[in-house]
Nucleic acid binder design. Structure first.
Lengths: 123, 123
DNA sequence: TGCCACCGTTTACGTACGTAATTGAAAATT
DNA sequence: AATTTTCAATTACGTACGTAAACGGTGGCA
């Protein structure tokens, strides 16, 4: 089962630093998201069912830790989009952003650097 | 309201060529998707409600045409992912695929070409 | 020892989605 | 004209999601 968008918000908190209690997660996410306590609890439970986080008892409360890494998640999401929209190839995706003028100077510089590094690796 | 994944499958058919009848869409999508007629009709109706397609009566049937362009759709989806996962910047996304060794030779060649073109544009 | 506060678990509820069966109207056939 | 066929529109239904209230157990305090 896939991680939903609201669930991903909780995961982001855990990726920023774990383990965390439900209370801490709420504190970090509540203001921006306008979520009540129950909402965060539900999301955590769904993430538990999906084996995306692990809960370890710590006295009266639980400490939540991500089982799914951010890398894995990013990988799944990106690959999904790439496959669905760009035939699984990266260059067309970048070309798309290029056409939309969504490449910043910084992006371009970094892409250039990246390609240089790939060159080097290939000794 | 967003276009769902199943709805996007129907849109892809219409982007490949419009207008089309429901029957044509089914013929093109049914085998791969294992969808029945009713499924395609429902998806078309939801797309109509979302103003993503337009239907024009043609005798006894309707001809469906996309109102949302593939470009717009791709743009929304890509930007969503980019913002959610890569801070809205393209280079980190490409770096991610690079780390995952998901850049094909062809990708690399095309990216290089793309950067060259960007150089040229900047005369 | 009995009650309260604190947490997690369970249940709830409206909407969207995937998938389809049912209905209803119009056209074609007999 | 009556019947059958053909479409689209309506309704259905289980699951996921966003959001949260209600329930329940357990440790602390009066």
């Amino acid at each position: 089962m896939a991680i939903s968008e609201a669930e991903a918000v909780v995961m982001e908190v855990l990726w920023r630093g774990a383990p965390r209690t439900a209370e801490e997660i709420l504190a970090e996410v509540g203001p921006a998201q306008q979520w009540q306590e129950g909402t965060v609890k539900s999301l955590l439970n769904r993430l538990l069912r999906k084996k995306a986080v692990h809960a370890e008892r710590d006295g009266r409360r639980y400490l939540y830790t991500p089982l799914l890494s951010r890398g894995q998640y990013v990988q799944q999401e990106s690959k999904g989009l790439l496959d669905r929209l760009f035939g699984g190839r990266v260059a067309p995706l970048v070309a798309h952003f290029s056409e939309q003028r969504k490449l910043s100077k910084k992006d371009i510089a970094e892409l250039r650097q990246l390609l240089r590094e790939l060159d080097d690796e290939r000794h």
